[in-house]
Design a binder for these strands. Structure first.
Lengths: 349, 349
DNA sequence: AACTGTTTCGAAATCGTTTGCGTGTTAAAA
DNA sequence: TTTTAACACGCAAACGATTTCGAAACAGTT
């Protein structure tokens, strides 16, 4: 095991001062060519690389960004991370991942752990439990300490931070339109509890479209899933809820699910109940991922362009970090990433 | 925006020395109770938290571990990350993610970026391109600089590092056995090129089992997919390869796919060709994930317990990091995580 | 020989924290 | 009154790097 090279080590070895070594390696014109050559050769030989921690301490910047998400085993979030990582890497930043597991407490802990100098800023999507509690003091404190935050997808208002979202209402309208265009007359929605704001917005879009089209709207068409307390048997409970929903509403002929999992699970239940897809009942999901693509029949979905959201979030954060160093404070902005419907088999006429 | 509190700031404000503040906050018996109380109150008021960067520089440890994986949009890897994150967090470590995108160059860059003090050790799964090049100098240099590495799943021999793997050969034998027990007589395998060692091992297991059972073995039963250069249309190429494979081998009645994607794609192609699953042809996959679970019909798979692998990898790494600080150097060990077959519909008789 | 200017380098501060050791004060013991 | 010990605190070095400023050394000019 080689001893790791440091400026001091090179300096004593070459019998010059530390500052000379530092300057020589950065091609300062203060240093003569001969010593430069000497130092550089030695540095290369010992594979010298400046210590990032020391640089961070000196420069007061870490070039790390913290990403806190509710869950990593989730296709949408991983695409966002991929986007963040891409942009961050291209701009010299590393990505540190924190998982909240939808828990308020873990979200606070993660924020705390990273906020003491480890990172320059956060990108996050709020945990369901935090949304249901409505307690956002940890975000405010973090921002108040000069650490910028960018929120994506599950964002909250009234906080001084940039946001990256999709136009959930319009996207949902289009999703329902897609079902209607394919011939559906009684369209149901499987969504989340209201405190998950994206779920609520998607429900609103659904309702607005039916309203505008003067179509049948009934409360029984709306199924709200509560899975904020992530347990072991969430999937079974989900299936049971949907089973009851379909049994109670045999007249439905189109389903808008606000995420992939709800979508494919609903398809499974429908199949078990003897429906033919898409002949008897059609489906559309939200958040394009592997599940939709490889479902049978393949599930039409609204693509959120997670990677694009991640890139944009990273861009906004890095911009704000750099701005802050120059004393600027930008107004917060909400960037809307467009959505696109990917037509597959479940909405074939 | 509050000024962030530091020892120095508290010291000048309270008109004591920096060391007094530091000691007071750690309840040193050198400091009187009255000043302790004073300092602590002030620290709490200003929400003082020691600066991690300074601590890292002083202690020569970052409490960060770097995880470099080929791809994050991949269920298996995310489960491993979840496991790593869980164990790491419980032991005071943060997780920094680097993505190689299966590229040798990006793997090297990631290693370099993080090796200069940012992390205390690596957990990684080797990129396909690196495996095909056979160039492992970057791993050796990293370890030689005193930064420990733990490899999982896609590991390589001859490197001084711990490994976390599954017993691919035995697991594959069991997988084939599962098909045979369900009545298959002509079992094919869809695997990777040989340089992906897990692919090769799984092929070996397949061959050994057929050998032992004295069953028919033909080269045409073996399909090797080359997807090391991740492009846009890999999935289409995959589908085309499988299509040709099935067309050339209409007598196959059982397929062992070495991963989820190959499995569900093969099922799709088979369905398009008019096979009924599992009546005409049965399937088993490897690496349990969302795809298998929600496929139609649901795909029987060999579960690799990714989360357990991640936890174990983190455990081995942290153990080695701590050992190194005490001057110990453990022998490298290879930990084998058990596998389990999850029986679903594609292997029903 | 004295002055000016350039070249080349080193000393020291700084980032925030920890910690061993030295020192001044006070109170108790002789 | 003197000695001693305990107590409470500050100084300074250390981690590894950057950077400002000052200072030698030498060349060239008058």
């Amino acid at each position: 095991m080689k001893p790791k090279a440091s400026l001091k080590m090179i300096a004593t070895e070459l019998d010059v001062s530390v500052s000379t070594v530092s300057k020589a390696l950065k091609d300062s014109k203060e240093i003569s060519d001969s010593t430069k050559k000497k130092v550089k050769a030695f540095a290369k030989l010992y594979n010298y690389k400046p210590n990032n921690i020391a640089l961070s301490l000196k420069s007061q910047q870490t070039n790390n960004i913290g990403v806190i998400i509710p869950e990593i085993v989730h296709h949408f979030f991983t695409t966002v991370i991929a986007g963040i990582e891409k942009f961050a890497n291209e701009h010299g930043y590393n990505v540190i991942i924190g998982l909240s597991n939808e828990s308020f407490k873990k979200e606070v802990i993660n924020l705390d752990m990273l906020a003491n100098g480890t990172i320059d800023g956060f990108i996050l999507s709020v945990a369901k439990q935090t949304l249901s509690y409505g307690d956002y003091h940890h975000f405010e404190e973090t921002i108040d300490q000069g650490i910028p935050i960018v929120m994506f997808d599950r964002v909250i208002d009234g906080i001084h931070c940039d946001r990256v979202v999709v136009d959930d209402i319009t996207a949902s309208k289009n999703a329902v339109k897609c079902l209607v265009d394919a011939g559906c007359e009684k369209v149901g929605i499987i969504t989340t509890e209201d405190f998950v704001n994206v779920g609520k917005k998607r429900l609103t879009g659904y309702q607005q479209y039916l309203e505008e089209m003067d179509m049948e709207q009934e409360d029984r068409f709306i199924l709200k899933i509560n899975d904020s307390e992530a347990g072991q048997n969430v999937e079974q409970k989900l299936e049971a809820s949907i089973y009851k929903y379909f049994s109670d509403n045999p007249d439905l002929d189109g389903i808008f699910a606000v995420n992939e999992l709800y979508g494919v699970t609903a398809m499974k239940v429908a199949r078990d109940l003897g429906y033919a897809i898409p002949r008897d009942i059609k489906f559309i999901g939200f958040t394009d991922g592997v599940l939709s693509k490889h479902a049978y029949p393949s599930l039409t979905t609204v693509s959120q362009h997670g990677e694009k959201m991640g890139e944009k979030a990273a861009e906004l954060l890095i911009r704000r970090i750099k701005g802050q160093r120059e004393g600027k404070d930008f107004d917060t902005q909400e960037h809307v990433v467009d959505t696109k419907i990917i037509h597959r088999e479940t909405t074939k006429e």
